[in-house]
Computed example of a mutant assay.
Amino acid sequence: MNEPIFLQSVFQERIWGGQKLKQLFGYDIPYEHTGEYWAVSAHPNGQSIVKSGPYQGMLLGELWNSHPELFNSSSTVFPLLTKLLDASDDLSVQVHPNDAYAGAHENGELGKTECWYIVAAEPGACIIYGHEAKTKHELESMIAAGNWDSLLTKVPVKAGDFFYVPSGTIHALGKGIVVLETQQSSDTTYRVYDYDRKDKDGNTRELHLKKAIDVTSVPQAYQAVSYDTKEIENGVITTFVSNSFFTVEKWNVDGKASFPEAKQYTICSVIDGNGELSIDGQSYPLAKGDHFILPISSGDFQLNGKLELIISHE
């Protein structure tokens, strides 16, 4: 039987970050403006490290390459990245490429389709989610004119909301929001607008308008969202999205809930509560802010306690 793989990961300093990852999850954050925690990552720009067990100290990318039998995947690289983001200020308005464009223009990098689960949101918090341009020419003209209020679509958010953000979607987290993001393992972002703010050295951050216009979907297409909810004994499983990029679910457990062995590796993030994972006669304490991977051949398992988890897999 394969043990669960608990991970310790990398914090990223961001101009828009803050202290909420410490306040909400108890993390020992390294920066005044801590914006991101790459909780489950094999991306070269921030890799997770195995905390314990037979693979202790290994980078997740190393584990992926040296022990493919743990994952049962046809992907050549670990294809997903799970992040927590603290938007203590507005993020830049941005857009991400698809696989084909990123492969051609970003040295073979994956594209970036992502999704957000809103962990916390201050009253009045909003995201930018899409745009109002009907043609590429109109998009270019509105960007050139700085006509942001007419171009960008704002959506109010609250804790518990979920948003699917395919590549080609102009988007931005607004101030006062904490999200768990599941995405393709990519670090390619094209900035469209950054509020003319300056970094700590007094420089405005680079924009990438040509590439952004190239990859933006016009007109904006919104996919209808319908969640699938299934009740199990002492638990509820909500499937937010399931497609060729990823499946993302929320598991609410209150008591002892049993789950069958997964056919593929499963990424698990505890976003609230505490309890324990029981598997193959062993118990592992779980607390808010823990992240782990269940490899294949782990066997059936139980979650016991009062827990909320975001679950993802290919």
Rank of each mutant, 00 (worst) to 15 (best):
P4L: 09
S9I: 06
I15E: 15
G18F: 05
K20L: 10
L21F: 13
I29H: 12
Y31W: 13
S41R: 05
S52W: 09
S52D: 15
G53F: 14
P54D: 14
L70S: 11
S75Y: 14
V77Q: 13
L85F: 07
D86V: 00
D89M: 03
A100E: 15
E114R: 02
C115L: 03
W116V: 02
V119C: 02
A120R: 01
A120S: 14
P123D: 15
G124S: 06
I128T: 13
Y129T: 01
G130H: 08
E132T: 14
A133K: 00
K134Y: 00
K134F: 00
E140Q: 10
I143F: 10
G146H: 11
G146P: 05
S150Y: 12
L151K: 03
V155D: 10
Y164R: 00
T169P: 01
I170L: 12
I170M: 11
G174M: 03
T182V: 07
Q183K: 03
Y193I: 04
Y195L: 06
D196H: 08
D199S: 05
K200R: 09
D201G: 07
E206R: 04
L209F: 07
K210R: 10
K210H: 11
I213L: 08
T216V: 09
D228A: 08
E231D: 15
G235Q: 06
T238Q: 06
S244W: 10
D254Q: 01
K256P: 01
P260A: 07
I267Y: 06
S269I: 00
V270A: 09
D272W: 05
G275C: 07
Q282P: 01
Y284M: 07
A287F: 10
A287H: 11
F292Y: 15
L303T: 06
L307V: 04
H313W: 09
E314L: 03
